[in-house]
Structure formats: C-alpha cells, structure tokens
Design a protein around this nucleic acid. Structure first.
Length: 861
RNA sequence: GCCCGGAUGGCGGAACGGUAGACGCUGAGGACUUAAAAUCCUCUGAUCGUAAGAUCGUGCGGGUUCGAGUCCCGCUCCGGGCACCA
C-alpha cells in the first residue's frame, strides 16, 4: 500500500491520535453527576469470522459522530460496545474443528475490535461486554429465573419448527418460507418439549408502549402488526353431536350470514363431531393434511380444501341447521381453531363456499350495490331485528344478545404467540434448571427456608414422560453462573436431543440438598455420603437459550459491567437511565427490538429498572450495497473491508465518505470513485494549514476575516450543528466543503476561524482535526475545546437578492437594500430589464410579494 | 393480495410550497511540468441559437395554487415487510 499524498501522512497521524485517545482515556465515561449525560448505543454485533465490512461501519461512525459532538457540547458521553457472541456459526465451526467455540469467538472479537479501532471509533472499551462471558450470562440466567419465578417461563410440548440440518428447533420468526433463516435448510413440524416465555401476557403493554416512542413509523407499524391485536367475540354453537363449538369472529354483525362452520384439521373436537358415515373421509383428509409441509398448506395460490363431518350446528339466533366442515385454511393456533363461515362477507369463506357449493347469504349492504364477497362494513339486511343497523352498532348488539343467552362474549385476540425460548444447541446460555420427580419436588416445596425457594414459582413447571411427572427446580443466585460444561461432541444427538446431553454424567445427573442448597454429582461416591432425606435426585436441563437472550438486556450491563451484586448497578442506572439514541438495522424491527422491550418492561414491573421502555429513540441506517448494487456478500465478491480502505485513503476519508454518500437512512451503493472526492477534500484541508515543509501555513494568520468569510463561517457553524442534531451528515459535510472552498478563495484566514472549522470537522474526521488543532498551537484534545456557537449577527447581509417572476416563471433578479419597502421593490421589479418584455404581454392582474425572497406578477392579456 | 418506503442530470445526491440540480464524482478544455502524477482554473440537464437568450425538464395522467420535485386524487415501476390471523 502506498499513501496517495506524501505530505499528508495519514497513517502516522491516525496511529498517533488513536494511541493518544487510548493513553488519555478520552472516551472513558464516568458517572459524573455534575454533567448532563448522553448515552449513544449501537446494536452490538455478532462477531463473525468474516469480519466487518464497510456497511457495518456506517452505523458505528454515525454514533461516533454524535458521541464526539455531544462530548464537545459538554455532555458526559457513554458510547459502549460489546459482542453478541453466542450463535450458530461459532458452534458449526466447533463441530467442524473440534475446537471449543470460545476460542473461535475470541479470535473474531479481536479482529472486530481491531477494525473498529482502526476507523477511530471513540468507544469506552473499559465497558466492553460479551454475552458468552460467564460473568455476563450469569445475569442472563438470573433474569430468566426472575421470569420463571413469576410464571412467565414454562415448558410445553408443542409443535415446533425442527431443522434437522441445523440440528435445532427454530422460532417462528427464524423460519422464512418454510426454510431456516440461517442457511435456508428445510424445516419440519415436530412435537417437542420446549421452554416458552409468555410474551403474550405483555401483548397489550407492548402495543400501547409504542405510542410514546420516537421510532421510525414503519418499525412501529411492523410491531403493531406483529402483535396483531384484534377485537371481536366468541360465539358458541350447539351441535347435533354432544359437543358445543366456539368460534372467534371480528365480525359478529355478519352472524346471520353464517352458512357453515369450519374447523382446523387439528381441532380437538373433530373426532367427536364426525359421523360414522363421514369417518373414512375425515380421517383420510386429516392424514393428507398431516403429510403436507406447512409451506404447501399455507400456499395462498392453492384452492381451499375441506371435508364435511356429517354433523350440523344450530344457528344461535335463527336455529338454522349449519353444516360443520373440516378445512385446512383454518389455523389451529389462532382464535379457537374454528371459524363461522360467512361466504358473503369474507373472501376466504367465499372461496371455500364456491369450491364446495355451499350457500352464500348476503346480510350486509354497502353504499352501492357491491358484488360479493363484500368484506367492508355496511348496513345489515336479512338479519331479523338487527336489519338496518350499521355494522359496528349491530356487532355490539348481537354480542349483547348472545351474552344474555350465555353463548357469546366479547374478547381480544392476538397474533403474537408465546416466545419459543429453547434451542438444541451447545453455544448458548445454559438454563439454570434441574428436573426432579414430582414427589421430590413436593418434598422441596414442603421444606421451609430451602435455598431453592428463591426462584420457585407459585405453580410448578412440569412435564410428563412415560407416566412420570417431572418438575423444574430453579437454581439459586449462589449457583450462578451455571457455566457450559465440556462436551465430548458439539453435535446434537439423534432424535433432537441437545448437545449438552453429551456432557459428563457428573454434570448431567445431580443430587440437590433441599435444606442447604448444595448440589453434587449424582455418582456412587456422593450417594454414600449423602444418603439422607435432605437430598433429592435431578437431571439438568440440556437445552440452551436462544441468542436473543443476551441481546435482550446487554445495554444495561454497559452501565456496570463488573458489578457482582446485580445485573445493573442502581446508581449507574439512575444516572444513565436509557440510551438517548439507539442505532441499528431495520431487520431487527420485530425480533430483537420486541424481545428487548418485553424484558425491559418485565424488569420495570419487577422494579429493577425505572423506565418502561428501553429505547426511547431509534434510528435505522440504510444498507450499504456493493458497487454492483447488490447486497455485500462473499459469494458475489463485492465486499469492501474497512481496513483496506483506511490503508489506501485514511480512516478519516472512509468515515467522511460513508457519511457523505447520502442520507443515513437510505440504501446506497459503494463507489470507489466517489471516495476520491472526500480524500481530495482532506488533502485540501491539509494544504490549507500545512506547507510542503511541514510548517503551519502563513495563510493562517491573526488578521481579521472579511465580512463575507465571517458570514460563511457562521452559516457553516449553524448548518453543521443543525445537521448533526438531525443525523443529516451528508449535508453537514457538503457545508464543510463549501466553507473550505470559501477559505481557499481568500488570501488569508484568521486562526480563530481556522480553528472553528477544525472543531466542526472533528466529529467526522477526528484524526486530521486533532493533528491540525495541535499544529495550531493547542495542547489538549480538540474534543475538549467545546462546540462553536453561531453568531447570527455575522450573517446579516446589507443587500438582498429578490427573484422576479412573471406568472410563476423566473425572469430576472434585483438586489435591494435590506430596508427597502415593498413599494420600492415592486417598482424596481416592474422595470427589471429581463422582466419587462413579459410584463408588456398583458396587464398585471396581481402582485405577490414574499418579503426578502421574491416578487411574482400575474399577467393577463 | 395487504402495509410501509422510494423514483430528481452520465452517476451519488441537494432543495422551509418560492431561482430545480447545492456538494461530490465522471467527462471536456486550459494552466503548471521535459513528461506523467498531484494540484489549480473554466465548462458540464436537454433542445434551438454565433450570441444575447428562448423553450422544455424532478416516473406517468389529472387537480389545488399567483407559484408544485414538494400538497391532493388516480396509475406505473423498484425496494422492504406481512401473508388464509377469521
């Protein structure tokens, strides 16, 4: 690598100032209560083997600019960084190499850190956190136990997405189009015992909390849709079999239009409702559905299928006979798994009715004579005494009527499901749980003052296997962290067993002393010494938590990374509260950002944090694409490494370029050509200050600046400050360029003005700013010099340019003194040489004067 | 299908309802140099014109307004999200 300009030796300069910041601990944040705080947070990265590319640097540079700016403004700034280091790639590397994933993880962390330091990010590295560090995950486990204690963590045998290729269970949101999000492997449904967190209990709070957040509207909308609250009613239908059916509907107003009932194939009442004659058909239909993948089943393009059960329901208000069908378009996991079919007013029911020739009865009229299916609200018709009512009114009244009969109820449904919280993986947080037999659990709960009662829930969490019931015993704070055991193999076992099953039996099989809280391996030796009533036998939970666990609360740990008493120190929390700005990718709109809100809200309800929401202000940087316009990826060979760019053009040029490319939130392609432009800008700055001999340029002198130059500088202070506050870095840099171009045109420049320019430049290009600041004779870091204030009085001009339009088209312009009257200006405008011919084309019908800006004559004729 | 964004020169992008194209890149010409690089200066939306200048021009079609890239209505295309949620 060669430097592009011999006298601007950026390599030496950048290394020097990075060493300076480290030595002087420039970015060390302390709880200095005398100063206002500013906490700027990045979404912490997963340290992958590929390292960072220039796209990742974008967000970090943005937060660094904000951090440096706020620090100059006098804030006590916290800009921390950490590693979301549990995860699948490290585990797969371990499977391939046999080397413990922590080794690989540490190497990647070192590489990431080196890259970040090379671009000069002002980060307080003393607060670095790593989710795989037992000192960290001890508290992830502790928070899990708090959830467990309050009944928000439990197990259930449920159909889950199993990916045999990855050897693990995936959450709904990790499955995209029937393939795993990572790796795009096929997935299938399997019933397995899993941990779930009851996020549904927080659905309403998570929905309402969105209102007060300063977040991108699209992200809020995505969370709203994900939570998917819908108000409606439950309606119970009597049937000709000895079994009632309850359906959920958001449109009780369409009740008189019901012509069939449809059940999900998995609905528990299907068997009871199937008549002898239909048994064969229903059974074979269910078999057919079960053999289909979810991808096939949810394919919207296919025609809806179903089969008649042979049984009829009774309409609750008309008493009409309504056939009950089984249909695969009905989902078991929403509502009650049964729907009332109203083909006239629901597109899906309509399609189904068409396929099986079921009657369609119109009960809602719109304003015009709309064709069926008509799915909007309207006026009721053919609905007995409810005819003539509006949909909203009728929905209420019908539900009231049903409620009076004891067969209806208003209710709220959510689309969001409980959060599947266990994975069959090695490289994750171990659950601090031991499974014991029910009888032993009862001995434990009967034991007064048992240490194990610390996190014991009111209702036991249990599961049944081969007729035996097992209950979950939570470890105590004293047992934390429960560290990951060594395993003989990182691979999952056959039949979806977790890799931790490969741990030593002395870890897996334990004995708990319910009186002392002691835990020992359950081997022959311990049996002989502990053969009394206080000991119970147990088996450790071998699933691990998903990667999301650590990212749900990592930001809090930055406040007191070494606290051994609590996940977060109360004093530190009181001072820093929540991040003032959170910057990270829009791809986390509903996963990380929803889960973290859930945990934070939970911690708030427990009294551990004082705010209900973790991230009051959020910003998503756009994606930086490769120069070919595609997403950067190894396979396309369009990845740009920040280290290469920093070596060739300087870290300052890299930072400036990324911010100059366009609006921060926009996706934009990388261009090696365009970086030349900002690099030229840096070289111009260098030459303005430094001679070829390396001395301070004679142009930087003490003489007064011209009024025009003072005006330009003050405009620049004003514009750059506003733009930084609004994260519009592209236009801030453009203004700095305009300012420099102005400087270059003048013969000299006062030192004060030159230094002000450097202060404005410093957040964007900190290395060159520090270097030139020092060469101007300053002793300490430029960041401690404060932030310049614009002086509006310097920007007042004595002449104004007035635009002259005729019929809205620009025709001429005139210069007037600032105190000129409207009459004077109009008079002069009328005689403006280039406007006159257009004015002469007719008569002036109207004169519009925008003070200080323009005149527009409306000419008719 | 539904919900969000977006569309401006050769390119990345600027524009409180008020001079469209700031700033940068590219390209052309010039200066310096033995030469090149680097640097500096001029020009660079289209059409017509020697020029002054005129006309057109912000995805398409309408509208509101003295005036629309910007606001309203109806489309087209591109990007992202959700996707039988009853």
């Amino acid at each position: 690598m060669h430097s592009r300009h011999s006298d601007y030796d950026f390599k030496t300069i950048e290394a020097r100032w990075q060493a300076y910041w480290e030595e002087h601990q420039t970015f060390r944040a302390t709880e200095d209560i005398a100063k206002p705080k500013y906490w700027v947070l990045d979404m912490f990265p997963y340290p992958s083997a590929a390292g960072l590319h220039v796209g990742h640097i974008e967000g970090y540079t943005a937060t660094d600019i904000i951090g440096r700016y706020k620090k100059a403004c006098g804030f006590n700034v916290l800009h921390p960084m950490g590693w979301d280091a549990f995860g699948l790639p490290a585990e797969q590397n371990a499977i391939a190499t046999g080397v413990h994933p922590s080794v690989n993880t540490q190497n990647n962390v070192d590489a990431f850190k080196k890259q970040m330091q090379r671009v000069g990010l002002g980060i307080d590295w003393s607060r670095e956190v790593n989710t795989t560090d037992p000192k960290f995950y001890r508290w992830t486990q502790w928070i899990f136990l708090q959830l467990f204690k309050r009944g928000l963590a439990c197990v259930s045998e449920q159909p889950v997405w199993w990916c045999s290729e990855l050897g693990t269970v995936l959450a709904n949101e990790e499955v995209i189009d029937g393939k795993s999000e990572r790796g795009h492997f096929p997935v299938e449904r399997r019933a397995l015992r899993q941990w779930v967190l009851k996020i549904t209990k927080y659905a309403d709070k998570l929905l309402k909390g969105l209102d007060n957040l300063e977040w991108p509207e699209a992200t809020k909308r995505q969370q709203q849709l994900w939570i998917g609250r819908s108000e409606g009613g439950l309606v119970t239908f009597k049937t000709s079999a000895n079994c009632d059916l309850t359906v959920f509907t958001t449109r009780p107003d369409t009740l008189f239009g019901v012509t069939f009932i449809a059940l999900a194939p998995e609905h528990p009442s299907v068997a009871m409702l199937t008549t002898e004659a239909q048994l064969e058909a229903v059974e074979s239909y269910k078999r057919e559905i079960a053999s289909k993948s979810d991808l096939e089943r949810t394919d919207l393009a296919k025609t809806k299928s179903g089969v008649f059960t042979g049984t009829y329901a009774v309409h609750p208000l008309t008493g009409a006979k309504i056939p009950i069908w089984v249909a695969d378009y009905v989902l078991m996991h929403h509502g009650t798994g049964a729907v009332m079919g109203v083909p006239a007013h629901d597109a899906r029911d309509f399609e189904f009715a068409q396929t099986y020739d079921l009657p369609v009865v119109r009960v809602i009229k719109g304003a015009n004579n709309e064709p069926l299916p008509f799915c909007n609200k309207g006026t009721l018709t053919a609905s007995e005494e409810f005819s003539g009512l509006s949909s909203d009114d009728a929905a209420k009244k019908i539900l009231i009527a049903l409620t009076a009969k004891g067969i209806g109820k208003t209710t709220v449904q959510y689309k969001i499901h409980d959060w599947l919280f266990s994975r069959q993986r090695y490289w994750g947080d171990p659950f601090p749980i031991v499974w014991v037999k029910k009888a032993d659990y009862e001995r434990l709960t009967a034991c007064k003052n048992s240490p194990f009662s610390e996190f014991l829930p009111e209702e036991p969490v249990s599961y049944e296997e081969k007729g035996e019931i097992f209950c979950a015993v939570p470890l105590t704070s004293k047992h934390l962290p429960l560290t990951l055991p060594q395993v003989s193999s990182y691979k999952p076992g056959e039949g979806a067993t977790a890799p931790l099953q490969n741990a030593d039996p002395s870890w897996l099989q334990v004995r708990l002393n319910i009186r002392t809280g002691e835990i020992r391996p359950n081997d022959e030796g311990s049996k002989s010494v502990s053969n009394n009533d206080d000991w119970i036998e147990g088996t450790r939970e071998t699933n691990t938590m998903p990667q999301w666990a650590g990212s749900c609360w990592y930001y809090l740990r930055y406040l007191s990374p070494n606290d051994v008493e609590k996940p977060v120190n109360a004093d530190a929390l009181k001072y820093w509260q929540t991040p003032d700005l959170y910057v990270g990718g829009a791809e986390h709109a509903v996963l990380h950002l929803l889960y973290a809100r859930f945990w934070h809200l939970f911690l708030h309800d427990c009294g551990f944090v004082s705010t209900p929401e973790p991230f009051p202000k959020l910003f998503h940087p756009g994606i930086i694409l490769g120069s070919d316009g595609n997403k950067m990826s190894k396979s396309l060979g369009n990845v740009v490494n920040p280290l290469d760019v920093a070596d060739e053009y300087s870290a300052d040029a890299l930072r400036l370029y990324e911010m100059f490319m366009g609006p921060l939130e926009a996706s934009k392609p990388w261009s090696t050509k365009n970086i030349e432009g900002v690099f030229r800008f840096l070289k111009k700055i260098w030459r303005l200050f430094v001679t070829v001999e390396g001395t301070l340029s004679e142009r930087i002198g003490g003489e007064r600046d011209s009024a025009a130059l003072e005006c330009l500088l003050n405009e620049t202070v004003q514009k750059v400050t506003e733009d930084i506050e609004n994260l519009r870095f592209n236009t801030a840099i453009s203004q700095l360029m305009i300012c420099l171009n102005g400087f270059q045109k003048g013969s000299h420049l006062s030192k004060t003005a030159a230094k002000t320019f450097l202060q404005l430049l410093a957040p964007f290009a900190p290395h060159i700013a520090e270097e030139l600041w020092e060469r101007c004779g300053e002793q300490s870091s430029i960041i401690d010099a404060g932030w310049p204030k614009a002086d509006p009085s310097k920007c007042i001009r004595d002449e104004l340019k007035i635009i002259i339009q005729v019929n809205g088209k620009l025709r001429d312009e005139i210069c007037v003194s600032t105190d000129a009257s409207k009459e004077d200006i109009l008079e002069r405008a009328k005689s403006a040489p280039r406007a006159v011919p257009f004015l002469a084309k007719g008569t002036i019908a109207k004169e519009i004067y925008v003070p200080g800006k323009l005149v527009n004559f409306v000419v008719k004729g």
